[in-house]
């Protein structure tokens, strides 16, 4: 690109960078508060409204979290469900999206409309629960994965991406004696890494953040993922006093503020770690999948 080096252009660049920095700072300040809070003393949290630097740095809340195996265990569950769930998601999504990307496949439009219809109408909590129960999935990790095996949105992202691939590649492969499955596996998928990364991240974030299915479908506390524990800790303090049964608070006091913050930090950190690695693919993937031309 030819650089515009006029005065106005340079002023704009400076202002732009200043503005974006300010916006980023505004974004990050509350998050800094949470991080600072997770290291701060209870006294500071109770008496100061807002701060980003803890007066005295204490690792107590993190030590507390790791003192019992609940959080490590639930984090492992979350990681397992996220990895395996994302794999299942991608499998279901790809196998359905590939045929749907063939514009001349008879019946294709009917199926696409059927998919889109589910975006607008859903049966609701109880019927879905009864189906999950009927499938014998209750209290199994599969109940966190199978009922959300395909997100219609992601399905269509992948389908659109496949649709953009040059037909010739596939056709020549078929002429060479490759089956449809072989084409998908050896030609289409390797070329689809960007969209798979993007959609995979969507799915993974969904699994990582989901808590409601676990609450409803899993009755063994040992199987609860991290978000259930996190929510329980954060909500408990939210509801104290209002719905408070102080009888309970005599025995299990709501966790200290700093511990809540530490749990929040822990639950967000994995996403932030993974994110930059995927970010590049990500934009590319969504781009081709979502917007054509």
């Amino acid at each position: 690109m030819i650089r515009d080096t006029s005065m106005g252009s340079r002023i704009f660049d400076t202002l732009n960078i200043l503005f974006l920095s300010a916006f980023a700072l505004l974004t990050v300040l509350p998050f800094l508060y949470i991080i600072a809070g997770s290291f701060a003393s209870e006294k500071q949290l109770a008496t100061e409204a807002f701060f980003v630097i803890p007066k005295e740095v204490s690792l107590d809340s993190y030590r507390y979290i790791l003192s019992s195996n609940t959080i490590p265990r639930s984090a492992l569950v979350s990681i397992g469900v996220t990895l395996f769930g994302t794999f299942v998601n991608l499998f279901f999504t790809v196998t359905m999206a590939y045929p749907l990307s063939k514009k001349r496949l008879p019946g294709r439009n009917g199926i696409i409309n059927m998919v889109i219809f589910t975006m607008i109408f859903s049966g609701g909590l109880i019927p879905t629960f009864l189906v999950v129960k009927g499938m014998g999935l209750l209290d199994r990790y599969a109940s966190l994965i199978l009922p959300i095996a395909i997100s219609p949105f992601n399905l269509i992202v992948v389908k659109s991406f496949f649709q953009e691939m040059p037909e010739e590649l596939e056709e020549s492969a078929i002429i060479d004696g490759c089956s449809r499955y072989g084409v998908l596996w050896r030609i289409v998928l390797p070329l689809s890494m960007p969209v798979l990364a993007a959609v995979g991240l969507f799915y993974a974030v969904g699994h990582w953040n989901s808590f409601f299915s676990a609450l409803i479908y899993l009755s063994s506390p040992k199987k609860w993922p991290l978000q259930v524990i996190l929510r329980q800790m954060v909500m408990l303090a939210q509801f104290t006093a209002a719905n408070m049964d102080s009888f309970d608070s005599d025995f299990v006091r709501p966790p200290e503020q700093s511990i809540k913050m530490a749990v929040i930090v822990l639950s967000v950190v994995p996403i932030l770690f993974v994110y930059p690695f995927i970010q590049r693919h990500f934009t590319k993937g969504v781009m081709i999948g979502a917007i054509k031309g």
Binding site: T93, T95, M96, T118, G123, P127, T128, V131, M135, P147
Partner: peptide, 16 residues
């Protein structure tokens, strides 16, 4: 190839 996906929509989306 589409069978798993269609089964998914029928069972978990349309059935409820």
């Amino acid at each position: 190839l589409m069978i798993p996906g269609i089964l998914y929509f029928v069972i978990f989306k349309y059935l409820p």
